[in-house]
Simulated scan of single mutants.
Amino acid sequence: MCEVTHSILWQPAAASVQQRAPGSTLACRVGSGQATYHRFDPQLQQHQITYGLRMIQAKHQPDTASGWLSAREIHKQDYFGGELSTLNLLAHTCCHEFAHLLQHSAGKRYRGSVHNRHFYAILDELRESGRSDAVREALAKRAVERQIPLSSEPFELPDPALQPSPWQVEDAVAFGSGTREFHGVIIRVNRKTCTVDGTGKFRGRRYRVPISMLRKTP
């Protein structure tokens, strides 16, 4: 990933970046954790991209890959045809972090506004220019050359709508805590929420509660 970021993304853009900040360089590294990020060291005039080893490992499995922002971006923005695979996820990760580099270079990265419209315009441009496909192809080629497993097979992700709910009508539940703890009985199970009728001192009230907030009571 570091080599591909340098050769496919940095080299064509280096002159433009260095025009804004003369002497700028790029250093890529693999970190031991899952943190994956771009930052700029103004003293060294160096862009630094870190790819987390645990991030790379997570993107080899459907259940851990689907929670990453890169997976949501591929789906939502239809990058690589909206298809999730280890190869697509890692290629997109390279593009995502390099887009942050270009965003910083253009002065469009702001405190509290990182994944903004300027960022996604840059990411879209990497796709439209063919750079993202070139990254994907280069990663696949290097993986074959080094005999590193890098699957391009699409993940089969479970459809949440087809998964059985852990909750049933008439289950006694509670949600909230302390003085704002509420008790009730489920009267309807929806895909992401349950409708709960209050019991005891909460009788007469009805709530729609996110499933993640519910807990069973005796």
Rank of each mutant, 00 (worst) to 15 (best):
R127K: 09
A134E: 13
T195Q: 05
I187G: 00
S132Y: 00
V209Q: 07
Y207G: 01
R203I: 00
E145K: 15
A161V: 13
R146P: 11
E145P: 11
V189A: 01
V185P: 02
Q163T: 08
A143Q: 13
A140S: 15
F155N: 11
V189H: 01
I186L: 04
D197V: 00
V169R: 13
A138F: 13
E170M: 05
E181P: 00
Y207W: 08
N190S: 03
R191I: 00
L157Y: 12
S129H: 03
E153K: 11
E125H: 14
L157A: 12
I186F: 01
I148F: 15
G130C: 09
F202M: 03
W167N: 08
V144A: 14
S152T: 07
P164E: 13
I187W: 00
P210D: 05
V209R: 06
S152V: 05
P164I: 10
A172C: 06
R205T: 04
Y207R: 02
D159C: 10
K192V: 05
E156F: 14
N190W: 01
E145L: 15
V189Y: 00
E156V: 14
Y207F: 11
K192G: 01
V196L: 07
A161Y: 14
G130P: 10
T179G: 04
E137G: 12
N190K: 06
R188A: 05
F182S: 05
L150F: 13
A161C: 14
A138W: 14
G200F: 09
I186S: 04
L139Y: 08
R136Y: 07
E145H: 14
S129Y: 01
I211K: 15
Q163W: 09
P160G: 15
F175W: 09
E156M: 15
D133L: 14
D197G: 00
D133F: 10
Q168D: 08
G184R: 01
D159F: 11
Q163P: 11
R136A: 05
D133I: 06
P166N: 13
V209L: 06
E137C: 11
V144R: 13
L162Y: 08
R131T: 02
C194F: 02
Q163Y: 09
Q163S: 09
W167P: 10
L126D: 03
T179L: 06
A172P: 04
P154M: 15
C194P: 04
T199Y: 04
E156D: 15
K192W: 03
F155A: 12
E181G: 01
Q163V: 06
S165N: 12
H183Y: 08
F175V: 03
F175K: 06
S177G: 09
R203K: 07
G184T: 02
P210H: 08
G198D: 02
K201G: 00
P149E: 10
L157R: 12
K192A: 07
A161L: 15
P166F: 10
R136G: 06
S151I: 13
T179P: 01
G178C: 05
P149W: 10
A172E: 06
D159V: 11
G198I: 02
F155D: 11
G184M: 00
G130A: 10
L162M: 11
A134W: 10
A138T: 14
I186Y: 01
P158W: 08
I148M: 15
R131V: 05
F182N: 05
R146S: 12
R188W: 00
E125V: 07
